[in-house]
Each structure stands twice: as structure tokens, then as C-alpha cells.
Design a protein around this nucleic acid. Structure first.
Lengths: 121, 121
DNA sequence: TGCTAATAGGAAGATATCTTCCTATAGTTT
DNA sequence: AAACTATAGGAAGATATCTTCCTATTAGCA
């Protein structure tokens, strides 16, 4: 896909924003890539996001767009596992996320979900 | 091997201390597990330390013994890769390392190197 | 309408550390 | 000398993030 029309979101990006919104509703502002991947894998029966590369790229894009912010999690508080990069919706991000959710509607007619769809195989 | 006689070092541990001493001689005090594993793999033709689990366990032991200290590397200075745990010889560690090196001698007759030896296959 | 070029998706793997589980080994004890 | 058992070694994989490379798709232009 060529130069994207500004303001346009891809399905995967919408999905991420929606998940971020859910996280926020449940009282937590921050989420991290790996956890998001797990949630998406479980909930939507999505494939494994292919080594997660796709997801991290999408997260970077959303950050570029100003819809998410990221930071490393509180440093040496975490022993025994790689540190996570924590993402949070920005004000703009929350707005866009809600718009996208409204646009999708209750019955949700996803606009051509990418591989993150229930797809066969 | 049962309860080890205090003061005794296993071949792998000696190898680590020796590597630490070399690192120190080359002007760097700190080293990290993964780098050490690479060096050992290249230099001694050792096998890959089996997922590195063995090496990390040995490093923990040496730290327990007071021969090494460890700390997480300077936090968010490092982007784009997992942070490393940096190890350094303690005074005691350096002493023991030198003793071990002297004991091994120039021709070095390693006292039964474990799997970290040139071994077949 | 058909092409082209830019971009998103997917595969693969590098970078690091640590855990769990099983097996081999060798000090100790009998 | 034999048996017991604690411990080291090795396999496997979980946890996280990010990069590179290739392919599929599609928006925008001619």
C-alpha cells in the first residue's frame, strides 16, 4: 500500500487502539506488546502475529502518529524477565479509538481484518 | 555431585573467572552472560552452553560465592535490545582467578572440563 | 483501466536472561 | 566397595523487543 492517506487507520491499528481502550476501562492505562499479543491471540483467535514483528511495527506507527506514548517500565524493579515497553493512549489516541469503535458499531463489520482475523488454517 | 567442599571450583567456573580476568586485562571490568557465552563458544570451540542455562547458573553460583558481583546495565541508555546483567570480579574473585590460572599452568592441564570442552560431536 | 511504487504483513531470527525438568556424576556415608 | 543423594550439566522453552528480508497488496498516477 502506497503513501497512506493521513488519518487513516489500518485494521490492526484499530484493533490495538480498541484493546488499549479496554485496558483503560479496566483501570489500567498501560499495556505492553507481548501481553497485547497474548490477549489478541486468545480473544480473537488470531494467529500468533508472526513472531510479533508485525505488532511491534504497528505499535511504533501508532506512536509515530501520536496516538500512543511509550516508555520502558520501571527499571530494575523487575527481576527475572526482560523489561517491557509500556504503551499508553494519548488524548488524541483515546479520541480516535472511541471514534473507531463507534464506527465499527455493535455488530462490528471489520473492514477487512488482516491476518489477525479468524482466518482459516 | 554432592555438597561441594568449600573453596573448590568447577572447571566451568574456573573458565568463567579466567575469562573475567582476561576482560579485566583488556581494560574492561564488566562483562555479561551472553557475550561470555559467545566468546567461550568461539575461543574454546565449546558447545553452545545449551541454551545458556548452564552458564547463567554458574554465574549465579560465582556471585553467591562472592567472586563476582552483578548489576543491571545502565538502564534506558540501551535501546533496541534486552538489557544485560553486568558482572565484575570482586577482589576475592580476582585473587581466586589468578590462583586458578597459575595452578593450571602454561600448558594447562584442565581438571576434567565439563561439556564446555572441545569434546567430540 | 492498468502500472508502479510504497508500504504493511509475515517469516525468521538475533539479543538477553532466567526457569523448569530430567539426567549424569561424584562426594559421602555405610 | 556399594549405595545414596545432592548438585551440576543439558534440553527446552518462556519472556520481551526489535531487525532484516521477502511477499502481497493497494493507492494513486498515467
Amino acid at each position: 500500500m502506497p503513501r497512506r492517506k493521513p488519518g487513516t487507520l489500518l485494521p490492526l491499528e484499530t484493533e490495538i487502539l480498541d484493546a488499549a481502550l479496554s485496558t483503560l476501562s479496566s483501570g489500567q492505562a498501560a499495556f505492553h506488546g507481548f501481553g497485547l499479543a497474548q490477549t489478541m491471540r486468545e480473544q480473537s483467535g488470531s494467529r500468533s502475529l508472526t513472531g510479533h514483528g508485525t505488532l511491534y511495527k504497528a505499535l511504533s506507527r501508532l506512536e509515530e502518529f501520536g496516538l500512543l506514548t511509550s516508555r520502558w517500565e520501571d527499571t530494575d524493579a523487575v527481576e527475572g524477565r526482560p523489561r517491557r515497553r509500556l504503551y499508553e493512549l494519548t488524548g488524541q489516541g483515546a479520541q480516535v479509538a472511541e471514534q473507531a469503535r463507534a464506527a465499527a458499531g455493535p455488530g462490528q463489520a471489520p473492514g477487512r481484518l488482516p491476518r489477525i482475523a479468524p482466518g482459516p488454517a
